[in-house]
Nucleic acid binder design. Structure first.
Lengths: 240, 240
DNA sequence: TTGCCCCTTCACCAAATCTTAACCGCTACG
DNA sequence: CGTAGCGGTTAAGATTTGGTGAAGGGGCAA
């Protein structure tokens, strides 16, 4: 029981069985569930370290399960890896902005999937690592498909704008100075006119429309993505 | 930018100037010092994230500076990058085991040096890495997010005010003279009208409202942040 | 090659912020 | 009391910073 626990919710035994086998061989403790309702119940009682969730499920479908997981404070933080059958479904997932942390399309290779699982589990607090989807405040970025969605409607971002937003979105609330944004958006390269960032930010804001306010200017420093939900900054924690 | 701060101690302007320029362009906040004594003082008031130290210095030579930095608990953990003129000197330095964290021989290329600097800063140093959050008496400063919070409500500080408060807050009870506060808030530049600080202190106090008393005036010397584990902060007087 | 898209610069403006300097009142001390 | 020194206040002027419109260049596909 000292191992990490994974809850696998999928009704297709053809998927479920080999996957659970593979995961167990990697040393994980795997619990299987074959429909949404049961999966949800187990998630809430087990509080596993990770949930692998099929999009198409009997009784309650995957998206709804995901939504409910996110709605419950006990399960809110558990990483969810979504399995989808068709590529188009991804759009749906991304579009509904259900907060899956990553997803994989079926059919999938076992190795890469296990890798993704490990990556998600390795991530302790920071939302980083090899996550391909980031989603905040109604904006979802998928860097695999290079798609940006804001509340159903797709955002036609240019590569630079995308990387910029990706960087900001990955660490909401953190302020980045123009240099950081510079080499985040433009690979390496280094020295360019810092103000270039401003121009990109501008066009980004234009495309974000009403959501433009989420990209905040921190005068004298740089930019940051608004991060409101929680307020708690460790009070007396980091004293010298 | 109240981002990472570097103290550069080197008397050769031919080295010092271009290096500080390069580092600033990378987004660091650089303070220069041109002799060992001054450098040591500044290190203790600034508590920078990194110190670049020339081995050959007027007044107090580099090794001695390094030794004293290591002897002071406040500066003990700050990474030191040593600059030496000749390769043989490195052996000497290493031999004395003064605890420099890295060495670079002059002449050096700018790029690699900046790389080393970044590496040192990235490294989760001995204990905990550089402090990004400071919190005292109900006031919390977070330089990563660039947020100042006093009892739930956010303080809209200007960059200078932020740095000022950051400096005071990091060493509560310690009195800083106006020069120290000057180069803490004004990154470099040095001798401007000292009274400028007074004006900043005033606007800082205004924004602190009831907590203004925490920024104390030490007549004839400078300012300090109140340290005493104070009991109750004025209850109703919160309005400005 | 042309046209289009995207990135980068540049110039200009308004707003935010910093500095300076003058004026005041308070405090310490004979 | 009287005075010098020091910090508090204020307001105006100087400077910095970010927003914006537009021009120029490069890459790429038609």
């Amino acid at each position: 029981m000292s191992n990490q626990q994974i809850l696998l919710i999928d009704d297709e035994r053809g998927i479920s069985d080999p996957l659970s086998y593979a995961l167990r061989k990697e040393g994980f403790e795997v619990t299987c569930s074959y429909d949404g309702q049961d999966g949800l119940r187990r998630a809430q009682s087990l509080l596993p370290d990770l949930i692998i969730l099929d999009l198409m499920l009997p009784l309650i479908e995957g998206l709804e399960v995901c939504r409910q997981l996110r709605g419950d404070p006990r399960t809110r933080e558990i990483p969810v890896l979504m399995l989808t059958a068709r590529t188009e479904e991804i759009d749906e997932v991304v579009g509904f902005n259900m907060g899956a942390d990553d997803y994989v399309t079926k059919p999938f290779k076992m190795k890469p999937l296990v890798q993704r699982v490990k990556a998600l589990l390795r991530r302790p607090h920071l939302k980083e690592q090899s996550v391909d989807v980031v989603s905040r405040q109604g904006i979802t970025l998928d860097r695999l498909h290079h798609r940006a969605v804001a509340e159903e409607s797709e955002l036609p971002l240019t590569p630079t704008e995308f990387k910029l937003l990706w960087t900001l979105l990955r660490q909401p609330g953190r302020t980045f100075n123009r240099n950081e944004l510079m080499d985040a958006s433009r690979g390496e390269d280094a020295n360019a006119f810092e103000r270039t960032i401003d121009v990109h930010v501008r066009s980004l804001r234009q495309k974000l429309g009403a959501r433009a306010v989420l990209v905040e200017t921190v005068r004298g420093v740089g930019y940051r993505f608004r991060d409101e939900p929680h307020e708690s900054i460790p009070p007396e924690a980091a004293a010298i």
